[in-house]
Nucleic acid binder design. Structure first.
Lengths: 137, 137
DNA sequence: GTGGGTATTTAGACAGATTCCAAACTATGG
DNA sequence: CCATAGTTTGGAATCTGTCTAAATACCCAC
């Protein structure tokens, strides 16, 4: 399935988001390359040809998408957040030295022995991050 | 076993760290309460009675402890890093609403089905974070 | 204990990511 | 064409964390 700007409008509407120019561009940036981008990377991607979207809008929009469950945030780098267009259950492989972040399908992984939750609590999500680096030897 | 400031000096020496006043206070803040503290929280804890340690020293010292393997950093909150005096293998339970962070012993948990690493790579660590929140219903 | 070298600490400037704000702009229905 | 609600914007503000150059503390030979 191809990701087009038209698709994006559909997608946004289906998540109860008014599809504006900027929002479509930002969604397209994330979904068309199925990659983990930081706010900054989204910013430069969207403004590649000529400036059209402000920093404030990028942040507003990413947070809106987050709220509406269109994307997820991935917290692996203490200095910045990554945004992930893949909302199906999955885990992450983080290359510490290069900053590269890739997915691990959750279906192949089993996690057993987690303790019961405290009373009145529910799980919001489970993040599994495998940090790897180039061998030093 | 009690954590005293004298103990801390021992501990620091055993990790090849020159035990100074400030370093002992910071180590004591972390170990005596066995909790996950942010740099900021360490700062206020240490300077509780009267100011004695600067921001720069808190950051320097935490990074030094990290390098020397005395503590670990935990990246769960996009806005700040937590420091963890427990270096045994373990995972984390993060209460999203309160920001509270507690440990899950790794011995009770098994993780299976992780994909093989790319050539020439090694695992630096595996972080498993269970995000929980108060039930909304 | 004195001099000098090294390690440590410090205040404050700085950097980068993110949020805030109030003003300008856009779209829409009547 | 107007009113209104929803969006976008630049720039200021905030916050965590780092850097720097100067002051301080520590240590050891003499």
């Amino acid at each position: 399935m191809q990701y087009t700007r038209d698709n994006m409008a559909q997608l946004l509407r289906s998540h109860d988001i008014n599809p504006t120019h900027q929002r479509i561009e930002i969604a397209y940036a994330l979904f068309s390359r199925q990659e983990h981008l930081s706010a900054d990377q989204v910013m430069t991607t969207v403004n590649d040809r000529y400036a059209e979207t402000s920093k404030a809008t990028v942040y507003n929009t990413l947070n809106l998408f987050l709220e509406k469950g269109l994307i997820r945030e991935v917290i692996v780098d203490p200095s910045k957040v990554f945004y992930d267009p893949n909302t199906r259950p999955h885990h992450h492989l983080f290359q510490v030295d290069s900053g590269r972040l890739t997915d691990i399908d959750a279906r192949s992984v089993t996690i057993q022995g987690l303790p019961p939750l405290p009373e009145g609590m529910e799980t919001e999500g489970i993040d599994l991050i495998v940090r790897i680096r180039r061998k030093t030897t």
